[in-house]
Design a protein around this nucleic acid. Sequence first.
RNA 1: GCCGAUGUAGCUCAAUGGUAGAGCAAUGGUUUUGUAAACCAUCGGUUGGGGGUUCGAUUCCCUUCAUCGGCUCCA
Length: 640
Amino acid sequence: MINVTLPDGAVMEMDKGSSALDVAEKINHNLALRTIVAEVNGQLVDVTRPIEEDAALLLHTFDSEIGREVYWHSSAHLMAQAVKQLFPEVKVAIGPAIENGFYYDFDRDEAFSDEDLEKIEERMRELAQEKQRFERVDMARGDATKKFKRRHEPYKVELLEAMPRGTRVSVYQQGDFIDLCRGPHLVHTGKIKAVKLLKSAGAYWRGDERNKMLKRIYGITFPSKKELRKYLAVLEEAKLRDHRKLGRELDLFSISADVGPGLILWHPNGACMRNIIEDYWRKRHVENGYKLVSTPHLGKAQLWKTSGHLDFYSDSMFAAMDIEGQEYYVKPMNCPFHIAIYKTSKRSYRELPLRYAEMGSVYRYEKSGVLHGLMRVRGFTVDDAHIICTPGQLDEEVEKLLTFSLGMLRGFGFNDFAFYLATRPEKAVGEPEEWDLATESLRKALEKHEIDFKLDEGGGAFYGPKIDIKIKDSLGRYWQCTTIQFDFNLAERFEMEYIGSDNQPHRPYMIHRALLGSLERFFGVLIEHYAGNFPTWLCPTQVMVIPVSENFKHFAQRKLKALRKEGFRAEIDLRNEKIGYKIRDAEMMKIPYMFILGQREEDTNSVSIRRHGEGDLGQFTLEEAIKKIEADINNVKDEE
RNA sequence: GCCGAUGUAGCUCAAUGGUAGAGCAAUGGUUUUGUAAACCAUCGGUUGGGGGUUCGAUUCCCUUCAUCGGCUCCA
């Protein structure tokens, strides 16, 4: 007999060689049905693997991230099996689980059409119904290589040959399909109850653009049809919230093929919101000890040579332009300009930390295929700042930044964040020891704030490591906004100095940071987060005044004037239309408040308020109405 | 940039190897309106651009531009 300890501390006595599934079955049948994978003494194993000694056991269902990962990994195998049956000439590459579902890469000359996907999906359902068991076989690397050579799977052979001699590998087989795989896997394919293949696309073998482009199929599966329907509904919802669609409908921005791809035209509504965001941003920065600066869009080649951009960043820079025999570049970053400001006078340690902030518009060459609405563009405005401080001030500045950034993002209604610490990339300036030092400093700041973070190996900027903060939106998606980048290189390269208390020159430290990231991307995220139903303080039009008929035009205009005098952004709809029509229009434009003004209101000198999405709130005096809207605006801003 | 798809009126979408159509929007009029679409009329397109095949192309082919979904990259 062996003792199996469960997460709640309970100990179960089991026969030696019992499996995790046996344990689950003993607890209750339903759990056994739902169990996907077992964690025995911290190691993930197939639920059918015998447990030979006392062990701590954790059972994962579809409710856990690990459970879903295994589930989707097995689903990828199922898909590959279906593809091999339908298209035997196809070579299989790799097929992992991803955050939402799974994919599998195949080598096939033609792309998979929508009809192909349907066929594959159908075959997956059939194979799932056959409840084929995922059988694990351990073997020597060499044996596996021979096996996959016989089966004419060159990608598997390549993977195997990259492994060290003498490695033991495992292969999993379900039905006629065999795959090189660490596992673990589901018990059998019958656990997969609902299948949806979402899209097919090209993908480079091993993610390297020098390699052959394979054909990838993305799919998702669930233990029930209901869960699949729910997931598809979320995708539909995301489509409705797409900032490109809302941007057009709410007349916020556009991108013109004539102007150029990736270049944003901010329409009056969008520009109004942008100005509100910027005003708020400036106010908070001044409050937090920043000095606002403003710098040009071009700089001489030598500047970018000194900064290292031409060596490390030129792939992202637009070509040089010739000005009277001198080469100039459009700026991809603001840092050299802020440094130039710093260097205009001799600095004392008493001045530090200096915090220069700017809404700096930069231009970066992005490959045409990556452009995406406001999220990925070629010209954008970074809410940039550079903090120049003494080494001793670094930790405190990074900590302040974390607090400042989260406060600002909360002000816009975001409350969930994910943190990343990004380390030295392949192409980088500076010595590895310096990198380690700087990375440790950022790590300390995160740990001091007791922030959970993930490590992003090699994800740093070329000049230093960074902390990235991603915000979670109302659909649970993460977007990168804040980035806090340590830099020990530019100070060196530009020979920045300050005079210390010892009356000697010293090299300052520098931090680059953007809190919103880029205004363009942040605006896109805002649109999708709120689905266009912005908090009132951000709305381009806060109140639409709607007279019931032309007879109340003057009465309505007086109210409009009063609202504007109070500082509200109000408009009036004097079109020759019925009020149902005007209300519908205002509702579709997602204007938070409508004042409906007719005989009843004129008689009592009141306004009827209609709230967007809620409907008629009844009659109020203008003073009451104003208080109401002010309260709404302040309510949101209190969260700052 | 690479793989794939798409491109018809301001928007959403039809249609066909033989002179391109609807709804909304816009414009003009009628109506003076009470909480999500009044009625009538009118305007609007070299079917993204260029080239080719054809008696004839919006439809088929090539090319180019742009967009969409991915890959690589990234604020």
